[in-house]
Design a protein around this nucleic acid. Structure first.
Length: 764
DNA sequence: ACACTATGAGTTTTT
DNA sequence: CTCATAGTGT
């Protein structure tokens, strides 16, 4: 067979990786070195040359997008198709395993996935339910801690809290949260991985099956794996699996959410005979850009070590612009974009990359002013939108009445007179008797005394509505397992309830009268009053919300079960709900239009653009204030800078502002240290245009000095208080009069430069 | 139960 | 400053 298409276009290092003989490999793939190509061609090589059947190959990525791209490229590459090949995210694969082995994993058959938002609400209710002070145990942090523990593979009983009271309470929250999830049949993201891992450890037969099947493991973005994912791979590989991991320690930027770069080096120790292959030839950027990137990343210690190089052109120097303030910065960037668009054309070639989301605002304003189309990445995704989650929560309840997260959301959206007081009665009962909210409501209606007539009727109506909806969806009862079609209302409450008439033999209902998924959603959106509610929404965005609800129906009508779903025994509804949780969908408006791209440095990883604007390179912003004290975190910031620089193909612009409004106060900042780490010979300093910007600058400082100025004699060592930064000491001062800038060491907020005239300082 | 006001927090994000 | 949420008042 002719396999030249698999190797012809490769350089030596790439070919070495693609054609490697059996064994474990670590491919250190620098930015723009053809990582995905190596990964896909390796799979092609295994299949077509080594004759490895597709079903024996497992390729794991972190995002659905990456998985989708890989599959698309494989479809083009592999003759005979990619049938049987598993390509997916860690979470997606773990999810499928749990669906197929729900019993062994100790889950209800109809378990559903709890997304991050639902998880936080759930934790919040737990914290409140335990009678804890939410200020001392912020639900956000508690949820973060629980996820961290799960990522470390820890259950509440494995945590050594010792005498530390805060930790002990957090463990208590973890335990209670876990109980609540179990009762509700809910599994959060971290739980998917942890359960799948435990499934393997506890069920050797299941593990062996998958070890026998997936003998070839390929992992993308290996530097982003957390402890649990690493353990997962190790267990699955066992003694016989061959692993091919691809990553770049210099692009590890997710340490703060549990990723362990150390896994890259650990891999070489844990997998016997593992060999390293470095991909250092870059096909993306000019040599100027690469030199800059190399010299920045060289400052980091503990690297495996790589030097990017290119056979391509030197290119232009990197333009650096020292802006007066953030408006001036945005003006400069937009001007360059307009020039570029006027000369060459495409706005979509331009990317503005920033450290924090808040920075997009200025750029957006000016882009709007100049009628330049733009797209901001990383907004709310489709399935994360409140109206979508509202609609789906009704479907979740029809599938599983005990889904407390769905219950809490649906119960009073739209408002139906079931307020906090009423819910607290139900919550207390649920907690006290270890029941789901649904069961608690049933009990309260049957024998409770705490609810007044009006509230009681509202609850009764809600329960009846859900039951009624479930009956409409599938007129014949499915199976009587207790989890899905759990609780039928007492006869008296259920209007026209036909006596239960279960099908013999647990046959799956395929009643011709059953509603399609799209019809079910349409029904839910309409019958619950959700659409009416949003149509009359006073907050102005009614139109788009209703459009989104309609779009949800469309999405559902296009939804199809995959062979995998069917094999795992998923119903259409279950599969759709899982899909909604695992693939939150594109960010808003996936317009393929010719738009300027705005995004954070984090979301830029993996992308490339002819023109890149790296903005806000200032100490305190990038690197962020919170990272400068810790060497490890600072190195991660530096890797982020490396990622940013290497996004640029032709031209890189770096900007920083001398003055920037942050959290409502005017801040002065020095250029980022990362800027100083680029050899000056590669830089081209653009002078600010004095005529345009000066008056603005001068004008603002020419205004009468605020009175504070007078009664703040600038003395070094003076203790002062600032409304947002707290107390600190003046350690140095520059300039005079209205231009006076003070350096203040704040006790909690670190060192800042502030304009004396603007900072609201109180001498102490 | 809902609308309004006050208060506080404010890197980075996928699944 | 700007957003989200908590708390207050009707």
């Amino acid at each position: 067979m002719d396999v030249s298409h698999l190797i012809d276009s490769l350089n030596d290092a790439q070919r070495e990786a693609v054609c490697a003989s059996p064994g474990h490999y670590l491919v250190l793939a620098g930015a723009g070195s053809g990582k995905t190509r190596v990964l896909t061609h390796r799979i092609g090589w295994l299949n077509q040359v080594e004759r490895v059947p597709t079903w024996a190959i497992l390729a794991v990525t972190f995002t659905n997008k990456a998985a989708g791209e890989m599959r698309a490229r494989l479809d083009n590459l592999i003759q005979g198709g990619t049938q049987g090949l598993t390509v997916g995210t860690f979470h997606g694969i773990a999810h499928r395993l749990l669906r197929r082995h729900w019993r062994e994993a100790g889950l209800p058959e109809s378990f559903q996935i709890l997304d991050a938002d639902d998880q936080q609400r759930m934790v919040k209710r737990i914290v409140a339910g335990l009678g804890l002070d939410e200020a001392r145990f912020p639900p956000r942090q508690a949820a973060w801690q629980i996820n961290s523990w799960k990522d470390e593979g820890k259950r509440p009983e494995n945590i050594e809290a010792g005498q530390h009271p805060v930790t002990r309470t957090l463990v208590q929250i973890y335990q209670a949260y876990e109980d609540a999830c179990r009762r509700a049949g809910l599994v959060d993201f971290a739980e998917l991985l942890l359960r799948a891992h435990e499934l393997w450890l506890k069920q050797p037969a299941v593990l062996e099956h998958y070890q026998q099947r997936w003998r070839y493991l390929l992992i993308d973005e290996f530097q982003d794996t957390n402890s649990l994912q690493y353990a997962w791979i190790r267990v699955l590989a066992g003694r016989t699996g061959q692993t091919f991991v691809v990553g770049d320690d210099d692009q590890a930027i997710y340490g703060w959410r549990g990723a362990k770069v150390e896994n890259v080096q650990q891999f070489l120790r844990d997998f016997p005979g593992a060999r390293t292959i470095k991909l250092e030839q870059n096909y993306r950027s000019t040599s100027t850009i690469l030199k800059a990137a190399n010299s920045v990343i060289e400052r980091n210690g503990h690297r495996l070590g790589k030097q990017l190089w290119t056979a391509g052109e030197e290119g232009e120097r990197i333009a650096v612009y020292a802006a007066y303030n953030e408006q001036d910065e945005a003006r400069f960037v937009i001007e360059r974009i307009r020039e570029y668009v006027a000369e060459h054309g495409d706005a979509k070639d331009c990317a503005i990359l920033y450290r924090s989301n808040a920075q997009s605002r200025n750029f957006e304003e000016q882009l709007i002013q100049h009628d330049i189309p733009y797209r901001v990445y990383g907004g709310l995704r489709f399935f994360d939108r409140a109206e979508i989650k509202d609609a789906l929560s009704y479907l979740r309840l029809t599938a599983n009445r005990h889904d407390d997260a769905a219950f809490e959301r649906a119960v009073n959206t739209p408002p139906r007179g079931i307020g906090d007081r009423t819910l607290d009665v139900l919550r207390r009962r649920a907690r006290g008797e270890s029941l789901s909210m649904w069961e608690a409501a049933l009990n309260e209606l049957a024998m409770g005394t705490e609810l007044a007539g009006r509230a009681k009727n509202a609850v009764k109506g809600f329960l009846a509505m859900i039951d009624e909806m479930a009956r409409t969806f599938s007129p014949s009862p499915l199976r009587g397992e207790g989890w899905g079609e759990g609780s039928i209302l007492p006869e008296a409450l259920a209007p026209n309830s036909p006596s239960p008439n279960p099908l013999p033999g647990g046959e799956r209902a395929s009643n011709s009268e059953a509603l399609s998924l799209a019809e079910q959603i349409e029904h839910a959106v309409t019958q619950t009053g959700l659409r009416d509610f949003y149509e009359n929404d006073s907050r102005g965005n009614a139109e788009s919300r209703v459009e989104n609800l309609d779009e949800l129906v469309n999405v559902a009508s296009r939804f199809e079960l995959t062979p995998d779903d069917i094999e795992a025994g998923l119903s259409e509804l279950s599969a759709f709900l899982s899909h909604a949780a695992l693939e939150a969908g594109e960010g808003q408006g996936e317009s393929w239009d010719n738009c300027v791209q705005l995004m954070t440095l984090h979301s830029a990883k993996g992308l490339e653009f002819p023109l890149v604007f790296l903005v806000g390179l200032e100490e305190g912003l990038f690197p962020s204030q919170r990272s400068v004290e810790d060497e490890g975190r600072l190195e991660e910031e530096r890797r982020l800078a490396y990622v940013g620089i290497t996004r640029a193909r032709k031209r890189l612009f770096i900007t920083h502002a001398e003055s920037r409004r942050m959290h409502g106060t005017e801040m002065l900042s020095r250029p980022s240290r990362f800027l100083g780490e680029v050899p000056p010979s590669l830089l081209d300093e653009v002078r600010p245009r004095v005529q345009v910007s000066r008056p603005l600058y001068a004008g603002r400082f020419a205004e009468p000095a605020p009175s504070l100025q007078e009664d703040l004699p600038v003395k070094l060592g003076q203790r002062v208080s600032h409304p947002s930064f707290g107390e600190g000491v003046v350690v140095s001062a520059e300039g005079s009069g209205a231009h006076t800038r003070l350096q203040i060491n704040f006790e909690n907020a670190g060192s800042k430069w502030l304009v004396a005239a603007y900072a609201k300082l109180t001498p102490l």
